[in-house]
Design a protein around this nucleic acid. Structure first.
Lengths: 214, 214
DNA sequence: ATCATTTTGTGATTCTTTTCACAATAAATC
DNA sequence: GATTTATTGTGAAAAGAATCACAAAATGAT
């Protein structure tokens, strides 16, 4: 399910690129190729979400984007807060990609008084006010960009205040109530995993060379 | 397989924290709890990689870490290059987490002459020299932090020069030869997915409240 | 108007990952 | 030293995700 949903977002991305270069229709094949997956997968994903095209005629890009937008909630702006104004928090705060995708970072929170500032485009506020802020605006989405030892506390406060989705950059598994969804981004871990498989790839090569030699 | 491997890295992380607070032995239960998984999963993962503990006595943390280190290649330094010295590239370049985990960023590459600099701790070099650099040092690992439209070209050049593992931050699916492993980090996509499920969580709540009301 | 071709949509199948169930065994207790 | 208890290790079952196989329908060709 999670995998299917994130593929749907990717299809949308691809479709928007396709539209930009003037394409009007696509086949499941085209999408599959661009995304390194199979045409069957594309159709299965669509079918699962009730999206249908025309036999022999594929899918109308424009219409498809509209359908995906509605399905994926891309037809409205989503408000987000970031907790943690360190290197990562600042990078995220200045990251243009969110706005492009319909997310608006409404505030950043930190516990270091020196980082507080209401002047910038996005205010950096004392973390004391976190719950009040979330409740007042009925926010659903939070990004955690604090050190690992502070992450669980932040998560607890967020969910208690009503946050329903967390994007967590701290390298710990957060414990949250069942009505909150968490997704983790762990850059170190990702690089470690890559390094593990890179090593295997090298070893396989050696093996196949050995095999060739036999 | 990929999931198991990344869990192994996480077990190691957790174990190191446990050791720091003076623990000497763990049970699969302890690891599972810390990592939000099941004890069975932990043991299955270990069993799959030939790691064993003591019935009733659990696992000796110190020994377990050593075993994982060897298994996961954490007993040596891995050299990495980054391509792209924009916001993201710079953030990654100054990110302490890699060094902590045994990765050394040996160079950053960019195609903008203004960004070139051999003075810093990590040199920023012209991307023209990419292949030569990789081959000369027999590097395996590369991080792609360039805009989406440049990512595929960079990936092609990296793999042609011998890179076997790529951590890709560009929001496109890279096409690489079968002997190269790619892992993608797509912050926008991750946030989109979180937002999708956050919405569902809210709707479910509404439903269950309705149910209660009946 | 008929036939061949292309492409969708989906039930059935296979593959992968997780969970279950429980035997084996080491330690603790009596 | 026999018995209970806690914990591992793993084959079997279940759940989840991807792939296959093919019928149905739309289009184009003759």
């Amino acid at each position: 399910m999670k995998l299917t949903v994130s593929r749907l977002y990717k299809y949308r991305d691809t479709l928007i690129r396709f539209r930009q270069i003037g394409m009007v229709r696509v086949f499941s094949d085209d999408l599959a190729e661009d995304m390194n997956t199979s045409a069957t997968q594309v159709r299965k994903d669509f079918s699962l979400f009730g999206i249908s095209g025309n036999k022999k005629g594929g899918y109308q890009i424009h219409r498809l984007i509209i359908q995906l937008d509605r399905l994926l909630g891309k037809d409205k702006t989503h408000f987000v807060i970031i907790v943690g104004a360190g290197n990562l928090g600042k990078a995220l705060m200045n990251y243009g990609g969110f706005e492009e995708e319909g997310f608006k970072v409404v505030a950043v929170f930190d516990n270091d008084p020196r980082k507080i500032s209401r002047k910038g485009k996005i205010p950096v506020l004392p973390v004391q006010g976190l719950e009040r802020f979330i409740k007042a605006r009925e926010l659903d989405l939070g990004i955690i960009a604090v050190p690992y030892f502070a992450a669980q506390e932040v998560a607890g406060r967020m969910t208690a205040a009503g946050i329903k989705g967390i994007l967590n950059f701290a390298p710990v598994s957060l414990k949250v109530p069942g009505d909150c969804f968490v997704s983790n981004i762990n850059v170190q871990l990702e690089l470690e995993t890559v390094s593990y498989f890179a090593k295997i790839m090298k070893e396989n090569k050696k093996h196949s060379q050995q095999k060739k030699a036999l």
